[in-house]
Amino acid sequence: MGKRVLLCDDEIHILRAAEFKLKRAGYEVRVASDGEEGWELIQQEMPDLVVTDCQMPRLDGLGLIARAREHETTRELPFFMLTAKGLELSHADLAERLNVLGVISKPFSPRDLLRSIDEVLQPAAASG
């Protein structure tokens, strides 16, 4: 059974592209259109990694990560941020304060997104 990845984004076409790429690579993918929905999915079925947009309705990406860090079970859950925001997001702050693995800027390459996820979830395969 493949590793589970949760994708959170309010742009359906972005979700679809990322989901398509990851599924073809053998990942089990869940999608959510905002942070609240994402948090519900995390609680239902713990993913191995989460990729989240920053700006979303109801609960944004930063709120979702902050909430995850408050809970024992999700404190170490790996997060990537996929965002169109530029310098207004401090990558160093995200890494230090919220333990975010990395920020992938939109427009993004599904190929690069897959490679980043592979490096975390399948390090041996990624290096090989």
Binding site: E11, H13, I14, A17, A18, F20, K21, R24, Q55, A84, K85, G86, E88, K106, P107, F108, S109, P110, R111
Partner: peptide, 26 residues
């Protein structure tokens, strides 16, 4: 400027991602 940039990047992200998927033969 930040809003314009964000609003432009979102459709661009879709275009770039799907072009790449097609080009990669996915």
């Amino acid at each position: 400027v930040s809003s314009v940039s964000h609003e432009m990047k979102t459709p661009l992200a879709g275009i770039k991602a799907y072009v790449e998927l097609l080009a990669d033969g996915d």
